[in-house]
Simulated assay, not measured.
Amino acid sequence: MTDGEADMGSGSPEEASFAQRNRLVLLTGLALALALWLLYEAGEKGLLGEPTAERSSVERIAWQLLPDGSQFAISASPVVSSSSSMTEHRSAMRCWPQDNQFSCVSITKSSGALSALNVSSYSTDDLPGYLLPIFDQDGYTCSTVLGSPQESIGNGSATLTSNQLRSLDDRWSRKFVTRFMAENRVKGQWFDCLTVLREVSSGSLETLGTTLITKSVLP
């Protein structure tokens, strides 16, 4: 054995262990980076179970001032879900100025394998620049699925109670909705959701911007 060969093999056990740990940390880091990249790619392609909207189809909206002082906007083109059903979603919103805020009614129409209308209401400080589909059951909302209307009260994404309607005479009273939301600490308030749903179901999303819908639908 030469002097050089003896020097190459003369490292202490502590140095060998340190080098082995370094290699392990490097390999672990590379594996983590690869896993994160694969998760990112799966999310971008809608492979993680939650349908995602195509970014290219989301366009900035233009608000239209209506004679009653409210503002109306409708999405110019549908947002397409990346799921296999290829469901299209279009949205419309109408906002009335109230107490230095805007009180708004929002509608999302879904068409494809499952046809649905979702109506909700909320307050905002500023008019949004984009309209995205709204499906959460936050507060008091109403909807139709395949033509069957219902009203719901939810907290976030969970529905707390719902009412399948055979006719508008079966609707909840404003008093019940207000009391239930207060007793169960649900944010939001009652509004005349079913009137909006009826008029839009009989017409189109553009109906939200007509005189058939007035500020009287708000509390």
Results as ranks from 00 to 15, higher is better:
N184V: 07
F191V: 05
P149M: 07
L39M: 15
D7E: 15
D99L: 06
A76C: 02
E41P: 00
G209L: 02
E50Y: 08
R171V: 00
W63M: 10
S173G: 14
Q189Y: 00
V200A: 13
A158T: 13
P13M: 02
L197H: 01
Q64P: 00
A73H: 05
A92F: 11
K45R: 15
C95V: 07
G69W: 07
S81M: 03
P128F: 06
S121L: 00
S204M: 10
L36D: 04
R23W: 11
E15N: 10
D99H: 11
K45C: 03
Q137T: 12
I74N: 04
S56D: 06
Q71R: 15
S70C: 06
G129V: 00
A6H: 11
Q189S: 12
S202R: 15
S83H: 08
R55Y: 01
D192L: 01
V119N: 02
L131N: 05
E15H: 07
S121M: 06
R90T: 14
D136N: 14
K215V: 03
S81F: 09
M181G: 13
S162E: 15
P67H: 06
L114A: 11
A92M: 01
T52S: 14
G112V: 03
D68V: 08
G112C: 09
Q20Y: 05
H89V: 04
S10T: 03
R166A: 14
Q189T: 09
A33W: 01
P219W: 08
P133Q: 10
G156E: 04
E54P: 00
A19W: 14
M1V: 13
V217R: 08
P78F: 06
H89I: 01
A76E: 10
A35P: 01
S110M: 12
R174P: 00
S75V: 02
S70M: 02
N118A: 07
L47N: 14
E59M: 01
Q150G: 05
A113R: 13
R171G: 02
T211R: 10
Q150C: 01
E206A: 09
I213R: 07
S103H: 14
E5K: 04
R21D: 15
Q150I: 00
V25W: 05
L197I: 07
F191E: 05
L39Y: 14
T195C: 00
E54H: 10
L24Q: 11
K109L: 06
V80R: 12
R23Y: 04
L131V: 06
N155G: 02
F72N: 00
D138R: 10
V105M: 07
